[in-house]
C-alpha cells in the first residue's frame, strides 16, 4: 500500500500535468495572459469581499464552461490553499479571540476584517489562476509571454518547469519506493534517515537532467529566426476580456 508521501507526490504530479495541457481551448495568448495576470493580481491585493466573491464566481463559471471535467481538481486546489492559509493564520485568529474576551492582552492583533481578507486573498487568487490554467492550459500562458516578448530565458524556464515538475515527482515516488523496498527493520529513525537521502538525490538528478535537456534544446535550436505568430481574436477572447474588464471596473468603482 502506498504511503501518504508517495500518494501526495503522485497527485501533485498528475495535477500539474493537467495544468500543462488544459482543456485545449484556444484563447488569444496575449488576452489570456493579461486576463490571468490582472485577475490574479487583483485577487491577491483586493480587500473587498464583494470583489473576492465575484472573482470566485467568475472562476467557478469559467471552469464549469470551459473544462467541467477538471472541476474536482479546481476545488481540490482551492480547499488545499484555504486549509493551509487557515492553519497558518490560526495564531492570528487565536490572538483576535483572546483580545475579544479580554482574557489578557495578546499585544497587537488584526481586526476580523483583516483576518477575513488574509484568508480570502490566497484562496481567491488560487481559484482564479487555477481555473484559467485548467481552461486554457499552461501552453497558452507561455505563448502569451512569448507574444509580449518576455525574455526567452524566462519563457523557456517556465515552460520547462511545467513540463518537468510532474517528471520530478514521479522520480521522487520511484526513489521512495526503491528505498522502502529495502527497509526491513521496523525503525522510524532508520526509515527517516534513508528516505531523507531522496532529497539530495533529487537535487543532483534535477541538475544532471537540466544539463542533458539543455543539450537537447541546443541540438534543435538553429538561431533567432522563429517566425512571428499571427494572433487571432475570437468570441472566447472577447468574453474573457469583457469579464476581466467588468471585474476590474467593479473593484475601482465600489
Amino acid at each position: 500500500m502506498k504511503g501518504l508521501t508517495e500518494r501526495f507526490l503522485e497527485e501533485v504530479g498528475e495535477d500539474l500535468a493537467f495544468f500543462n495541457t488544459g482543456a485545449g481551448n484556444t484563447f488569444n495568448p496575449i488576452i489570456f495572459l493579461v486576463s490571468t495576470l490582472a485577475l490574479t493580481v487583483l485577487a491577491s491585493f483586493n480587500s473587498k469581499t464583494l470583489v473576492s466573491l465575484l472573482i470566485i464566481l467568475f472562476s467557478f463559471t469559467f471552469i464549469i464552461v470551459f473544462n467541467p471535467s477538471s472541476f474536482k481538481l479546481w476545488l481540490k486546489v482551492i480547499l488545499f490553499t484555504f486549509t493551509w492559509t487557515l492553519l497558518v493564520s490560526l495564531p492570528l485568529i487565536a490572538s483576535y479571540w483572546v483580545n475579544q474576551f479580554r482574557w489578557f492582552s495578546a499585544g497587537e492583533h488584526l481586526s476580523s476584517t483583516e483576518i477575513k481578507s488574509f484568508l480570502m486573498k490566497p484562496t481567491t487568487a488560487s481559484a482564479v489562476f487555477t481555473s484559467m490554467l485548467l481552461a486554457g492550459g499552461g501552453g497558452s500562458f507561455i505563448m502569451g509571454l512569448s507574444a509580449v516578448k518576455a525574455p526567452k530565458e524566462i519563457v523557456r524556464a517556465l515552460s520547462s518547469t511545467l513540463v518537468f515538475i510532474p517528471i520530478l515527482t514521479k522520480d521522487a515516488c520511484r526513489m521512495l519506493a526503491a528505498r522502502e523496498a529495502r527497509i526491513i527493520k521496523k525503525s522510524v529513525p532508520l526509515s527517516w534517515k534513508i528516505l531523507s537521502t531522496v532529497v539530495g538525490d533529487l537535487i543532483l538528478r534535477g541538475f544532471e537532467r537540466a544539463e542533458r535537456i539543455n543539450r537537447a534544446v541546443s541540438a534543435r535550436t538553429f538561431g533567432d529566426n522563429i517566425e512571428g505568430q499571427v494572433l487571432n481574436v475570437g468570441a472566447l477572447d472577447a468574453i474573457l476580456l469583457l469579464s476581466t474588464t467588468l471585474i476590474l471596473t467593479i473593484y475601482f468603482i465600489f
Partner: peptide, 20 residues
C-alpha cells in the same frame, strides 16, 4: 528522456520544423 522537452508529441516534432 534526455531529448524530449515539449509538453505534447505534436510540439516535440514541430519544435525544429517551426524554425525552418
Amino acid at each position: 528522456d534526455d531529448q524530449i522537452f515539449n509538453p505534447t508529441v505534436y510540439e516535440e516534432i514541430a519544435f525544429a520544423v517551426k524554425q525552418i
